[in-house]
Amino acid sequence: MKILVTGAAGFIGFHLSRRLISEGYDVVGLDNINDYYSTDLKFARLAQLGLIKESITDETVVESTTNQNFRFIKTDLENADAINELFAEEGFDVVVNLAAQAGVRHSLKNPHQYIDSNVTGFLNILEAARHSSLQHLIYASSSSVYGANTQMPFSTKHNIDHPMSLYAATKKSNELMAHTYSNLFDIPTTGLRFFTVYGPWGRPDMALFLFTEAIIKGEPIDIFNYGKMERDFTYIDDIVESIHRLIPEPPTPNEDWSGDNPDPSTSFAPYRIFNIGNSNPVKLMDFVDEIEQQLGFRAEKNLLPMQPGDVAKTWADVEDLFEYINFHPQIGYKKGIEKFINWYKDYYLIPQSKERASVDAVNTASING
């Protein structure tokens, strides 16, 4: 089976690509490696997959040096010609579309980036899928689509007509667009509403990364809504396991679907929506406390009002996902934080320590000489 993973240099895309490669799938990764956050981190992820930074050039498929079943192309989803050419040449069986312009707060300042990447880019994926023999299109949605909803836990049966940010609106647009193409062109599509994904190699704009970095540096951390927040933190391995199980399970039409009482999560077309979350919301202050305990430092906290576009609580109902793939998330937030901090220290602090030790040794030798 040949699989395209878009956003392969991103957090989830990198972890998924690594898992699929290990399972023997023929994987092509795609990413534009934009500078929304550090490109050094993105290239470091790709290096884990056997990609040499200097070998990566625009719109050229590059072979992995360590995995014969992985190749990579640097391009934008907005480049329709490049996407169509890639689909025509590769003949993908499955596409997992994880590429997107992420970040709720960033969307307040850069709205056009979200329309270009998340809407136009996704349309190009759908159009390319329309003209191929794709067996399954899986795409990233977001828990942010629940917007102003306060009924907990969030269920895929709930209405999502009140998004709180443009980012959320683009993700809802993706779900609507996918349904249209499932209906018109019989493309099996599965949308995944991710709930606050975290773990090693995570995004630097996410809370766990920001808090850990600031606490280690002795800098204050910003805590919004005066700490009265809860998040359904979901560890990256649980996300990847769920996607891995969904890949060979494309949706089929729901024969019991009725327009008189429509189920938003299924359809008369081959279309499905799932939440992927830990289904166990954690108070933000408990999350911060666990980071502090594991680092051995207390943080200075700036308690601030709610950010525009944000929500106070998320909580995923994942029972339909469990019934579909027989899997519940396994990793609790304490273990997940431990795994992230171990990675952070190994990636950011140990190399610095080695470099400082090397410099000290040179300086000592100079003095003794």
Rank of each mutant, 00 (worst) to 15 (best):
N225T: 02
G332Y: 10
R193N: 11
I115T: 08
Q294E: 07
S142K: 04
S132H: 10
T39L: 04
S265N: 00
I243H: 03
P351H: 09
D256V: 05
I215F: 04
L134N: 09
V359C: 03
L49Y: 13
P111K: 10
N183V: 05
E78N: 04
V28Q: 08
R298G: 12
I223Q: 02
I12Y: 06
R193H: 10
M152P: 03
D26G: 03
T6M: 06
V94I: 14
N67G: 05
V62W: 06
F87R: 04
K339W: 07
K217Q: 15
S142V: 03
N278L: 10
F11Y: 14
N326I: 00
S117A: 15
E355K: 14
V104F: 09
V95F: 06
I21S: 11
V197E: 05
Y36H: 05
R356A: 06
E127D: 05
P220S: 13
G7R: 13
F14Y: 15
L108D: 06
L77C: 00
D360G: 00
A47V: 01
S55W: 02
M306L: 12
W343Q: 12
M206R: 14
V288C: 03
G369P: 01
L30M: 15
N280M: 05
N97D: 14
F340K: 11
P308E: 12
K172D: 08
Y37W: 14
P111S: 11
A169K: 00
S242I: 05
L4P: 06
L208T: 05
Q135C: 02
V240D: 10
I325S: 01
D289H: 11
D31T: 00
D360E: 12
L41S: 09
A80I: 08
M152E: 13
R203I: 00
R18N: 15
P329D: 08
N110F: 03
F70H: 11
E355P: 01
S22E: 14
T6R: 12
P270Q: 02
M285I: 12
E323I: 01
Y226F: 15
T234Q: 02
P163M: 08
F195E: 07
P204S: 13
I216G: 04
P220Y: 14
E230T: 08
I350F: 11
P204W: 09
L184E: 07
S144E: 13
A178W: 04
S366F: 09
F122E: 05
K313A: 13
R356D: 11
I216T: 10
D76C: 03
N278V: 08
I216L: 15
T6D: 07
K228R: 15
L16H: 10
E90N: 02
L134A: 10
F224C: 04
D81Y: 02
T252S: 07
E127M: 05
V28F: 09
S143G: 06
A169Q: 05
L108M: 08
G91T: 09
S155T: 13
A357S: 12
P153W: 09
G369S: 11
E54A: 09
I187C: 02
D317E: 15
E90G: 00
L303W: 08
N280S: 15
S132C: 05
K354A: 13
A99S: 12
S279D: 14
N84F: 03
I52Q: 07
H106I: 10
S142E: 05
N302R: 14
K334M: 13
A128S: 15
A214P: 09
E323L: 02
Y146P: 12
D320R: 13
N84C: 03
E89V: 07
R19F: 07
I247W: 13
Q68K: 15
L4W: 07
F195R: 06
N326E: 11
